[in-house]
Amino acid sequence: MTDYVFTPAPIPSIAVQDSDARFPLRRVFCVGRNYSEHAREMGHDPDREPPFFFMKPADAVVPAEGVIAYPPLTSDLHHEVELVVAIGKGGADISPEQAFSHVWGYGVGVDLTRRDLQAQAKKLSRPWEWSKAFDESAPATALRPASDIGHPSSGKIWLKVNGEQRQIGDLADQIWSVSEVISHASKSVVLKAGDLIFTGTPAGVGALQPGDVVTAGIDSIGELSFTLGQA
C-alpha cells in the first residue's frame, strides 16, 4: 500500500445517465473557436485557423444543477454551451475514420469563462488558464453512452439565460467534426480513457450576473439547468 504524505482527494468523476456507475475523469481538453459565427464574434477568421486546444482541471467538472459559484477576480463571466465527448479508449495519432471507436459517450457542458481575464491574457500574450481553469468552470450533464445514442453529427445546441435565448446553433455547424477534433488532439498527446473534450461553442456568448438561471441543451443528448451564485 502506498504511503502518501496526506490523504489523496477522491478521483474526479461525472455521472452516467440512468446508472449508478460513474465515469472517472482524467483530463479536460477544450476546443477554441469551432463554430464560424463564434470565431467571427471573437474577431477571428474561421477559414484560416486549425483547431487549437486549452485545458481545464478534471475537478472543474461539476454537475450542471443547483447553484454554481460566481468566481472571484472577474466582473465579466461568460457562458459557452458545448458538446462534451467522453473518451473511453486511449490512443495516439488516431485517424478520423477510427475516432468514434474511442468515444464512450456524450454530454452537454458549459465552459464558463472569465472574459476580462482572458482579454488581459491575450493583450499581454500570456496563457489563458486563469480565465478558463477555475473552480466549477465546467458544469456538465450526466453522460449518455454512445452505445445508446450513437454518434450525433447534427442537432440543435442552445443556451438561455432567465428564459431568454442567447445561443443557438447546430452540431453540423462545427468547423471541425468530433472525429476530426479527436484525430487532431491525438497527434499532440496520447488520449486516454477518462479524457473529456469540450468541442466548442456557437455564437451568442455573453455575460452572466449573480442570480441568473442558465438552461441549455443539445438534441438527443440532454439538458441542464443551474443558478449562478452570488459574487
Score class of each variant (00 low, 15 high):
residue 57 P to H: 07
residue 91 G to W: 13
residue 91 G to P: 13
residue 205 V to H: 02
residue 16 V to A: 00
residue 15 A to F: 01
residue 171 L to V: 00
residue 113 T to Q: 05
residue 160 K to V: 03
residue 31 V to F: 03
residue 85 V to G: 04
residue 211 G to M: 08
residue 66 G to M: 03
residue 137 S to C: 04
residue 162 N to P: 05
residue 52 F to M: 04
residue 26 R to L: 09
residue 27 R to F: 08
residue 78 H to T: 08
residue 54 F to R: 00
residue 158 W to F: 10
residue 199 T to N: 08
residue 13 S to W: 00
residue 92 A to Y: 13
residue 192 K to Q: 15
residue 16 V to N: 08
residue 55 M to G: 10
residue 64 A to G: 08
residue 26 R to K: 10
residue 25 L to R: 03
residue 189 V to E: 10
residue 81 V to C: 09
residue 12 P to S: 10
residue 2 T to W: 11
residue 2 T to V: 11
residue 9 A to S: 15
residue 33 R to L: 15
residue 50 P to Y: 01
residue 190 V to E: 12
residue 107 G to R: 03
residue 96 P to I: 14
residue 190 V to S: 14
residue 131 S to H: 04
residue 124 L to H: 10
residue 87 I to C: 07
residue 160 K to R: 15
residue 206 G to L: 04
residue 213 V to A: 03
residue 151 H to F: 14
residue 45 D to N: 15
residue 26 R to H: 12
residue 168 I to G: 05
residue 131 S to E: 06
residue 33 R to Y: 05
residue 45 D to W: 06
residue 207 A to T: 08
residue 103 V to K: 02
residue 41 E to G: 09
residue 146 A to N: 01
residue 130 W to R: 13
residue 86 A to C: 00
residue 112 L to P: 12
residue 15 A to Y: 00
residue 230 Q to P: 12
residue 48 R to Q: 14
residue 204 G to Y: 14
residue 135 D to H: 13
residue 205 V to A: 14
residue 223 E to I: 09
residue 8 P to Q: 07
residue 115 R to S: 06
residue 120 Q to F: 01
residue 62 V to F: 09
residue 24 P to F: 01
residue 61 V to L: 09
residue 2 T to S: 03
residue 41 E to R: 01
residue 86 A to T: 02
residue 63 P to D: 00
residue 47 D to P: 00
residue 84 V to M: 06
residue 127 P to N: 07
residue 137 S to H: 08
residue 121 A to P: 12
residue 124 L to W: 13
residue 188 S to Q: 14
residue 175 I to C: 07
residue 176 W to Y: 11
residue 9 A to H: 06
residue 144 R to T: 13
residue 224 L to F: 05
residue 127 P to A: 05
residue 95 S to N: 08
residue 89 K to S: 14
residue 157 I to D: 01
residue 105 G to P: 04
residue 81 V to H: 10
residue 78 H to N: 05
residue 216 A to W: 06
residue 166 R to L: 02
residue 19 S to E: 07
residue 74 T to P: 09
residue 135 D to P: 02
residue 151 H to V: 09
residue 139 P to Y: 01
residue 11 I to K: 15
residue 36 S to V: 02
residue 97 E to L: 14
residue 24 P to N: 10
residue 130 W to P: 09
residue 140 A to H: 05
residue 135 D to C: 00
residue 197 I to Q: 01
residue 187 K to R: 15
residue 137 S to N: 04
residue 198 F to E: 00
residue 227 T to A: 04
residue 57 P to V: 06
residue 11 I to L: 14
residue 77 L to P: 09
residue 118 Q to V: 14
residue 177 S to T: 12
residue 182 I to P: 11
residue 92 A to G: 13
residue 229 G to A: 06
residue 209 Q to V: 10
residue 2 T to N: 12
residue 156 K to V: 10
residue 84 V to I: 12
residue 214 V to A: 07
residue 1 M to S: 11
residue 133 A to Y: 03
residue 50 P to R: 00
residue 184 H to P: 03
residue 58 A to Y: 04
residue 144 R to Q: 11
residue 27 R to Y: 10
residue 198 F to S: 13
residue 162 N to V: 01
